[in-house]
């Protein structure tokens, strides 16, 4: 079997876990890592009914929090009469939160990705930026269609017409 191919960014964090999504031949592998153990969830391409992407305001909140922190740190810089060392010191410290704002803005809009099968709808915490989702989707889409065409050959098609699948 092919080695697992990462489909998303490395090390996306929720509060106690890092998440990453991989493509392993005929299935997607969701890997969560808590610092001590890895746990795995598998979703077979032929079973995927759909993908749902929900816009979130995470990017906005990150920018607000870190922007505010940077603004507070830059206060001594704008107060007239501050000593040079204070201006330089706080200015340098403020670069940290400012960098977060820049990186967060450049990384694109945030989202929540949900993967639906006939029996479950599962969050994919490894895909939380629209751009990351887009790249992952572009990669797996032809594979999913191919896997389901193959599976469909042995199963009679339902009477309803498939939705915009092409």
């Amino acid at each position: 079997m092919n080695p697992p191919e990462p489909l998303g960014p490395t090390g996306l964090r929720t509060w106690n876990r890092r998440h990453r999504i991989y493509l392993c031949g005929d299935h997607l592998l969701l890997v969560g890592f808590d610092g001590f153990s890895e746990n795995y969830r598998r979703f077979y391409l032929r079973d995927l009914q759909g993908l749902l992407v929900q816009r979130t305001s995470r990017r906005l909140w990150i920018n607000l929090v870190f922007g505010l922190a940077a603004a507070l740190l830059l206060l001594p810089v704008v107060i007239p009469g501050s000593p040079v060392e204070v201006i330089v010191g706080f200015g340098v410290i403020a670069l940290g939160p400012l960098a977060v704002v820049v990186v967060n803005s450049v990384a694109g809009p945030t989202c929540r990705t949900v993967l639906q099968t006939a029996v479950q709808a599962t969050d994919v915490p490894a895909l939380r930026r629209v751009g990351d989702f887009e790249r992952c989707f572009a990669r797996i889409r032809p594979l999913v269609i191919a896997a389901q065409d193959e599976a469909g050959a042995t199963v009679p098609e339902a009477d309803s017409t498939p939705p915009a699948a092409a």
Partner: peptide, 25 residues
């Protein structure tokens, strides 16, 4: 594209695969 959900107004993209309209084996 993202389209507002009729129920909650959240912008959602919904991508359907052929398996959606296939009965469970």
């Amino acid at each position: 594209t993202f389209v507002a959900c009729f129920g909650c107004g959240t912008p959602i993209r919904a991508i359907a695969f052929p398996a959606l309209n296939r009965p469970l084996r």
